[in-house]
Design a protein around this nucleic acid. Structure first.
Lengths: 223, 223
DNA sequence: TATCAATTGACAGTGACTCTCAAAAACAGC
DNA sequence: GCTGTTTTTGAGAGTCACTGTCAATTGATA
């Protein structure tokens, strides 16, 4: 039924503040480690079951049993079943890289460079995970809807970064428009994924499409 | 829970085929009229209750009771609770108008003109309804997610129309990119609606924002 | 009016969540 | 180690959005 859903990707704990007053460099406590392990376990079992039986056919109870926790605990770690799938920190990484791009690049150019950098820094495992979850997201309607909503949030994130980079105000309509165009172009580039079977498109393919689309946007759509 | 949700705005009957072989101009049968009335009644009561109590606080049973039908019947008319809110035919109208715009306009220019025309042709009542539902959609996360997903579908629709207008292939990446940029810019322009209270932004305001954003896109984002 | 098809309501599921409460585990000070 | 405190967990009951089935009603038709 999905009531009272948190808008943002809630459920992930910000690392709790260090009790030891000195440096901020410490291995997490037993509790933290256990929580992280539980979280990872739930996620892995869930994704495996989704792959094996499909998203709809897999119940939260099954996931909980596979991960050897109670259903209550499942919901303590992930506010909704959807949230198990919807998590990637790539956009955050990309924004960081974006802000460090040389000023001679255009806004879209800087964004392209940032995407490339982020993509290159990802490990094999991360890419594989990305491929799996993306395939899921694009084929399950409710996941896709959530992801699209996330895109809209991303517009704001990009707008902030763009405002910072150009020294313009966040309220400047041109900033928001540019961010919207970038995100829209990315959405469009990923759409063809929808009809495809599982392994038919790799993150690398997707990146190429997105990059090409951004290049066209950067040159101004001549149509 | 929302299982097996239809991707498109299902539930609306295409007017059933005329039994009388001759002209396509006939008043609907008693059955059709009754169905239309029931449908409208459910929708009105639902929207009223949403306005009065909020979307989440209103149950399907309440709506059914208010509209004096059984809960089963509710779901026969609307596949999900969300679908009561998510319905507008504006995009279809706009596409029609878009295809008739003079060829000397740029793609985005033609789109702007089409939007303006569509907006102007809408009645007061339609605009009021649009304001209500839009406010709901932007504030209720699950509705907003669905609406965003609808946007992604719209990219394809616009791409088709754009391909037709420019005589290019639908597979031409430039077409898809342009459609994506248009939709992205529209999304961005409507986003600020999210934080606002009910009557704080009118469809007219929204149209102005969208039009201005499209204008900027048309000139090529200089950033 | 009799017949057939479409529409409806009642009812019994299923499954994603929510809330509450008590047991268990980790942490803190001694 | 052995307390008291806090955090995490599991169990269980409840809500609500759906789904499927079947029998009763209603509109269309001969």
């Amino acid at each position: 039924m999905v009531r009272h859903r948190r808008t943002s990707g809630a459920g992930r704990d910000k690392m709790t503040v260090m009790r030891n007053s000195s440096e901020a460099e410490h291995r997490p406590s037993l509790r933290e480690r256990k929580k992280a392990r539980t979280r990872a376990s739930i996620r892995e079992h869930a994704l495996r079951l989704f792959r094996e039986q499909g998203y709809d056919a897999t119940t939260v109870d099954q996931i909980a049993e596979a991960a050897d926790v109670s259903p209550s605990t499942f919901f303590r770690y992930f506010p909704t079943k959807e949230d198990v799938v919807l998590q990637d920190d790539f956009d955050l990484l990309a924004i960081g890289s974006f802000l460090e791009q040389p000023p001679e690049l255009s806004l879209v150019g800087a964004f392209r460079a940032a995407a490339k950098e982020t993509m290159a820094s990802a490990s094999e495992t991360e890419l594989a995970g990305l491929r799996d979850t993306t395939a899921l997201i694009m084929t399950v309607p409710e996941l896709r809807a959530r992801a699209m909503d996330e895109y809209s949030r991303t517009i704001n994130v990009i707008a902030s970064a763009a405002a910072q980079r150009t020294g313009r105000s966040l309220d400047d309509p041109a900033i928001l428009t540019a961010a919207g165009a970038i995100v829209g172009v990315i959405m469009a580039a990923t759409l063809p994924w929808q009809g495809l079977a599982d392994g038919e498109m790799t993150p690398a393919d997707m990146f190429d499409r997105i990059d090409a689309a951004l290049a066209r946007l950067d040159e101004g759509l001549q149509l």
